[in-house]
Amino acid sequence: MNQESPTTTPARAHEPVIRHIGLSDIADALAAGVSDFRAYPAYGLFFGTFYALGGLVILGSTLSWDLLYLVYPLAAGFTLLGPFVAVGLYEVSRLRERGQVPTWKAVIGAMYSQSGKEISWMAFAVLFIFIVWMYQVRLLIALFFGLHGLPLEGFPGILFTTPEGLAFLVVGHLVGAALALVTFAVTVVSFPLLLDREADFVTAMITSVRSVVTNPLPMLGWALCILLVLFVASLPLFLGLVVALPVLGHTTWHLYRRLVA
């Protein structure tokens, strides 16, 4: 769909206007994201490696502290931080879109200039959701396994062969899915919007949610695509995130440009 499409949703004064998009726009944005990564791979590999190393640090910490049962919840929650890490990738795509050649000075400078601004509050909001996610994991462990928690020895068998374990997995995944959907709704547009224009982080989150509500089918498809890509990329010790993050980050920028007039 052309970015100048007149099909938009009404907005109040000073609110960004949301366009209606289709599944073809998701495919076009993904192709543009891959093109950005191939044009300037060094930036994508840098931020992707940084993100992957964060996952390895989490994995190593849980293993060294004998908290193996927290590996999966931490890995799942860690993916929520992706939109913040990808801010540098949005800047690369923005510069290329303007016909400018990205430089490390420009990209890092754009990120540094956001320090203490609205995008920092968005990062805090994402971090808060991550903390809520980890606390609800601890709460569910206490509810289903008592105050002593999940036994360290034989916990995989307990999870998959006992009523308490199965109930914990079902409820945990349902709560996790709800939090992931909330995170997706408030961040899919907000980070690139704050980088691109002057707005407060509340307006950015509202705009992001409006974009999802206005385009439920395409955005749900994009959310499922992100989930699948991150899941597969995380399996080989998070190493797949080196490529997955930059592709998803660049694609998010182009999707934002199609969504927000």
Rank of each mutant, 00 (worst) to 15 (best):
A177M: 11
Q100P: 02
P6K: 11
A178P: 01
E118C: 00
L80Q: 13
T162Q: 08
R210A: 05
L255S: 09
T183A: 15
E153A: 15
S115W: 06
A110R: 12
P6A: 03
A142S: 14
T183K: 07
S190C: 09
I119G: 04
Y72V: 15
Q3F: 09
Y135A: 03
T9P: 00
F231S: 09
A106H: 04
A123P: 01
T203N: 11
A180G: 06
A76P: 02
R38S: 13
P151E: 07
A13W: 14
L30C: 09
F50E: 02
Q114I: 02
D196S: 14
A29I: 07
A106P: 02
A142C: 03
V132T: 11
I141V: 13
A13D: 15
G22M: 03
P10G: 07
A110L: 03
I108N: 04
L237W: 15
L237M: 13
G240K: 10
L70A: 07
A106F: 03
V34W: 13
L230Q: 12
L53W: 10
H14K: 07
G82D: 08
R197K: 15
S35T: 15
L56G: 00
F168Y: 12
L166I: 15
Y72A: 14
L139C: 00
I18W: 05
R197Q: 15
Q100L: 11
P10D: 11
S208Q: 08
P10I: 11
S24A: 12
G60P: 00
V232T: 04
L230D: 03
V260I: 12
L179K: 06
A106Y: 01
V243N: 09
G48I: 05
T162V: 11
V175I: 13
A142L: 07
R94F: 08
P41Q: 03
L179Q: 08
F231E: 12
T49I: 05
R258H: 07
W133I: 01
V213A: 13
G249Q: 07
L143P: 02
V85W: 09
F50M: 10
P218M: 00
F128E: 06
G221N: 13
V202L: 14
R94Q: 12
A75R: 04
I108K: 08
S211L: 06
E97M: 12
E91T: 14
L150W: 05
I18F: 02
M111W: 05
T8A: 14
T8P: 13
G146H: 06
T183D: 12
V132M: 09
F201L: 06
P216H: 07
S190T: 12
G54W: 01
G176M: 00
P163W: 03
P102F: 00
A180L: 10
L89R: 08
V57K: 04
C225T: 15
V107F: 03
T203A: 07
H254Y: 02
G221R: 13
L239Y: 01
